[in-house]
C-alpha cells in the first residue's frame, strides 16, 4: 500500500448508509470477511428493508450534517419482502427530485442494489462515493431542508406519493407531474409557514425576500393556506397586508 501523508486540511466526509438486513448489510459483512478495504468514512445503519426508509429519515440525516446518504437494498426481484426495494425505488425518485431542488448534488444521495454476495461491489461503491464527496466538499447548509422535511411529513404529499405505489388510473407521466407539482407547492408552503412561525406576521414582500420565491407564488400559496385555515390576515404594515399563522 502506498502511504500517503494526509494533510490536515483534507476533508473527511461522513457518509451514512442504510443497508437492508438481508442483502446489503450481508454484502457489507462479506466485504469484511473477504478483508476488502475501503475508506473509513461510512457508518452503516441496519434496517430490515429499504422499503422501510421514510423520505424524512433521509432528509433529517442530511440536515444533521451527513455529507452523503447511501441506501442499499436487494436487487430487483430479490427483496426478502417481495417488493420493498421497488417501493423504495419509486420513493427514491421523489427524494431525488426534492434533493435536486435543494441543491444537493446527486453524488451525495444514492440508492444502490448490493446483494449478499457482492462484497466487492459494496467496497467499490463506498470507495467511489467517498472519493466523489471528498471532491464536493462538506454538505452545504441546506436552507430548505426543514421545509422539505415538513413537506414530506404532510399528509397531502405523502398521500399522492403512496398512491403511486399502487395502480392508479392515470397515465404515469401525468401522475408524476402532479406529484412533482404538489411536492413543489408543499415545500414552498412549508417554507412560508416556517417563516411565519419563526418571525411572526409578515407581508408578501417580506416573505418573498426570506424565501427567495416570487411574490406572485407567495400570493398563490397564501390564498391556498388561507382557504385551508392555516393563515389569516393580521393587520397592515406599510400599506401591505400582514399574514400570520392561525
Amino acid at each position: 500500500m502506498v502511504k500517503e501523508k494526509k494533510t490536515k486540511q483534507k476533508f473527511e466526509p461522513t457518509i451514512v448508509a442504510f443497508c437492508c438486513n438481508w442483502c446489503s448489510y450481508a454484502g457489507a459483512d462479506l466485504a469484511g470477511t473477504s478483508r476488502f478495504e475501503y475508506p473509513p468514512n461510512i457508518r452503516i445503519i441496519r434496517v430490515m428493508c429499504t422499503g422501510r426508509i421514510d423520505p424524512t429519515l433521509v432528509f433529517e440525516t442530511l440536515r444533521m450534517g451527513a455529507d452523503g446518504v447511501l441506501i442499499a437494498g436487494c436487487h430487483p426481484g430479490d427483496c426478502h419482502y417481495q417488493k420493498g426495494n421497488f417501493m423504495m425505488e419509486k420513493r427514491f425518485s421523489y427524494i431525488k427530485k426534492a434533493a435536486d431542488d435543494m441543491g444537493v448534488e446527486p453524488e451525495r444521495v444514492r440508492l444502490e442494489w448490493v446483494s449478499a454476495s457482492e462484497g466487492g461491489k459494496f467496497t467499490a461503491l463506498v470507495r467511489e462515493m467517498t472519493e466523489q464527496i471528498e471532491q464536493l466538499g462538506p454538505n452545504p447548509m441546506i436552507q430548505k431542508a426543514s421545509a422539505t422535511i415538513d413537506a414530506f411529513k404532510s399528509q397531502r404529499l405523502r398521500w399522492v406519493m403512496g398512491r403511486s405505489q399502487i395502480k392508479v388510473d392515470i397515465e404515469e407521466v401525468k401522475y408524476r407531474q402532479t406529484v412533482d407539482s404538489i411536492m413543489h407547492d408543499e415545500i414552498e408552503r412549508h417554507a412560508i409557514t416556517r417563516a411565519l412561525k419563526e418571525k411572526g406576521p409578515l407581508t408578501v414582500q417580506e416573505l418573498a425576500e426570506i424565501s427567495g420565491l416570487q411574490p406572485s407564488r407567495i400570493v398563490r400559496h397564501i390564498l391556498a393556506l388561507r382557504k385551508n385555515g392555516v393563515v389569516n390576515e393580521a393587520g397592515e404594515k406599510d400599506r401591505q397586508l400582514l399574514y400570520q399563522l392561525i
Partner: peptide, 25 residues
Amino acid sequence: GCGSCSAECPRQAITMRHFGDHQLL
C-alpha cells in the same frame, strides 16, 4: 415487518417495532 406501510403512511401513523423512526434517527 418490512415496514413499507410505515414509510408510505400519509399520516406517519405506522411505526415499526425495534426499527422505529425514532430509534433510527
